[in-house]
């Protein structure tokens, strides 16, 4: 494992921890998109089917279990926790996320490695992950004033994608992973979606003011 991959995994883990911290510490999920969280839960459940069949390393297994359980826990909190669920901005979180699921499914049925359930699910999870952040970005944009932890959550998620791209560039030159163009495109799309957010995050950090996205 190279340093970029490890940094990517750690920033991904931080993003989840920041989100859990926000929900537990403030007993509030305002500014968090339930739709994005549900999409991530679906991404992890479909991608980590190999937990049942293959063993890669203890590190991989533990991380996969952490991502699956944390995403399910967050969805549960937002839907069912007696206090937290009342803070959910339901009226603003209106992105039609099933269109993302449907689009990813069609792409996965068309472009995959082999036509097996596992490979189609894997491809589906790659496509869906690339766009799963959209409902969250739309919600951020609508809620204007973004609290620090929510801003940091999205920042760490974006950093994770950026590190994964660096990881792929590194692996491209050091290993023989040549024609893996699907994750490249999906990863670039996803990182591009964050570019705008990063810019405003940087401005708020530089000027030491609260993060505010333009209308």
């Amino acid at each position: 494992m190279n340093v970029f991959r490890f940094a990517g995994d750690m920033t991904h883990l931080f993003s989840v921890l920041v989100l859990l911290l926000k929900i537990y510490a403030t007993k509030s999920c305002s500014g968090i998109s339930l739709k994005t969280q549900e999409l991530y839960a679906l991404v992890f459940l479909t991608r980590y089917l190999d937990l049942l069949t293959d063993f890669i390393s203890l590190y991989n297994t533990v991380m996969k279990l952490v991502f699956i359980s944390s995403s399910l826990a967050i969805v549960w909190c937002m839907r069912a926790h007696p206090v937290v669920r009342r803070t959910y901005d339901k009226d603003q979180d209106t992105f039609r996320h099933y269109t993302l699921v449907a689009g990813s499914l069609v792409l996965a049925l068309l472009f995959h490695d082999r036509f097996t359930i596992r490979e189609v699910c894997w491809a589906f999870s790659i496509y869906l992950e690339a766009v799963a952040i959209l409902p969250q970005l739309v919600l951020l944009q609508r809620s204007r004033n973004v609290d620090n932890l929510t801003g940091q959550y999205v920042f760490f998620l974006g950093a994770y994608r950026a590190f994964y791209i660096l990881n792929w560039i590194y692996r491209y030159f050091t290993e023989q992973h040549f024609s893996r163009w699907i994750p490249w495109i999906a990863g670039l799309v996803q990182t591009g979606l964050y570019a705008d957010f990063f810019y405003y995050y940087y401005l708020s950090w530089k000027n030491n003011v609260k993060l505010q996205l333009p209308a």
Binding site: S57, W122, A123, N167, P183
Partner: peptide
Amino acid sequence: ECFSQPKDEL
């Protein structure tokens, strides 16, 4: 395996 992300990644 020319389509997918390496399977050893998360």
